[in-house]
C-alpha cells in the first residue's frame, strides 16, 4: 500500500517538473517572438506618420532628399536610397554569386580533401571578419584604388560598395551552396560519369541542378545580407544622397538611417522619416525571407 502511494507521488512530482520546464522553454520561445513583434509594431507605428505627412508616392518615388533645407522647401524622397540599395545588392549578387557558386563546386567536388578543408576554413574565417573591418580595408585599399583607376575626385563610390558587399556575401553563398552540393547523392554523379560525361559536365549538368534549391536559398540569404548591411558600406560609398551611378557617391537605405539618426532632431519630420526608411527596408527583407521560405519549402517537396 505504502509503496504504491510513494510511486504515485513521485509520478505527480515528475509531471510537475516536466510541466515547469516546458513552461520555461515556452517563455524562452516567447522572448524572440516578442522581440520580433515589438520591433515590427514599433517600426510600423513610428514609420507611418512621416509617410502620411509626406505622402506615400512622394516618399517612395521622390528623387530629392533635402531634409534640412532652409532656403528651399525640404524634400523627403527616398528613391535614391531605394535604388542605391537595389543596385548595390544586385551588383553584389552579380559579382558574388558566380564566384561563390564556383568556389563551392571546387570545395565540394573538385579539390582534394586537404585543400578543400583549408579553403573551407578560410571561408569560415572570412565570415567571421566584422563588417567594420571590411569597411576599413575597403577604405584604405579599395577607395584609393578606384580613385586612381578611374581618375575620380573620390573613390568612395557605388562600385566600391558593391565590391565590399560581394566579398561579404561570399562566405554565406559558398557555405550554403557547398552544403547543398555535398548533399547531392553520389549515385547521381556516378550515373552521369558512367554515361561517359566528364567530371565538369557532371558537376554542372547533374550536381548543380540537383542542388538548385539549396543554391537558390544561398543566393537569397546573400541578398538579405547585402541589403541589410550598413557599417561596411557607409565607409566606402561616399554617403551622398545621389541617384545611383557606378562611379558616383551614393547613400543606401541602411546608411541613410545610420548616418542621419545621430543628428536628426528628435521628433522632427526628418527623424520620423528615418523610421519610415527603416520600415521600407524591413518590408524588403520580409519579402526576401518569404521567398527564402518558398525555396526551402520547394526543396522539401522535391525530396
Amino acid at each position: 500500500m505504502k509503496n504504491h502511494s510513494t510511486g504515485k507521488n513521485r509520478s505527480t512530482r515528475k509531471e510537475l517538473i516536466e510541466k515547469g520546464i516546458n513552461g520555461i522553454f515556452f517563455l524562452c520561445g516567447l522572448v524572440s517572438v516578442g522581440f520580433v513583434l515589438a520591433i515590427s509594431i514599433h517600426l510600423v507605428i513610428s514609420g507611418l506618420p512621416a509617410i502620411r505627412e509626406i505622402g506615400l508616392v512622394d516618399f517612395l518615388f521622390g528623387a530629392k532628399w533635402l531634409p534640412t533645407a532652409t532656403t528651399t522647401e525640404p524634400a523627403f524622397g527616398i528613391l535614391p536610397f531605394i535604388m542605391t540599395s537595389i543596385y548595390g545588392t544586385a551588383g553584389a549578387v552579380i559579382l558574388g554569386v558566380p564566384l561563390g557558386i564556383l568556389t563551392a563546386i571546387f570545395i565540394a567536388k573538385v579539390a582534394p580533401p586537404a585543400m578543400a578543408s583549408v579553403m573551407h576554413t578560410a571561408v569560415e574565417l572570412l565570415a567571421g571578419i566584422p563588417s567594420v573591418v571590411y569597411g576599413l580595408v575597403g577604405m584604405i585599399v579599395l577607395v584609393p584604388g578606384i580613385q586612381r583607376m578611374f581618375d575620380l575626385s573620390s573613390g568612395a563610390t557605388l562600385l566600391a560598395a558593391i565590391v565590399v558587399l560581394s566579398i561579404m556575401i561570399l562566405p554565406l553563398i559558398i557555405n550554403v551552396s557547398e552544403t547543398a552540393l555535398r548533399a547531392v547523392p553520389r549515385e547521381y554523379e556516378e550515373a552521369s560519369l558512367a554515361l561517359g560525361a566528364t567530371e565538369l559536365e557532371t558537376f554542372f549538368k547533374v550536381s548543380l541542378p540537383a542542388a538548385r534549391s539549396g543554391v537558390a536559398a544561398a543566393v537569397v540569404l546573400g541578398v538579405g545580407r547585402a541589403i541589410g548591411e550598413a557599417m561596411a558600406i557607409i565607409m566606402v560609398s561616399g554617403n551622398v544622397a545621389n541617384m545611383p551611378s557606378l562611379l558616383g557617391s551614393v547613400r543606401f537605405m541602411t546608411t541613410a538611417i545610420a548616418s542621419e539618426m545621430s543628428y536628426a532632431a528628435a521628433g522632427s519630420l526628418q527623424h520620423q522619416a528615418l523610421f519610415s526608411i527603416g520600415l521600407v527596408l524591413f518590408l524588403f527583407i520580409m519579402m526576401i525571407n518569404v521567398s527564402l521560405n518558398v525555396f526551402v519549402k520547394g526543396r522539401r517537396e522535391n525530396d
Binding site: Y188, A191, P209
Partner: peptide, 8 residues
Amino acid sequence: FQKPNPFP
C-alpha cells in the same frame, strides 16, 4: 547500378 538512380 544496384539502386535505381534516375536524375532528379
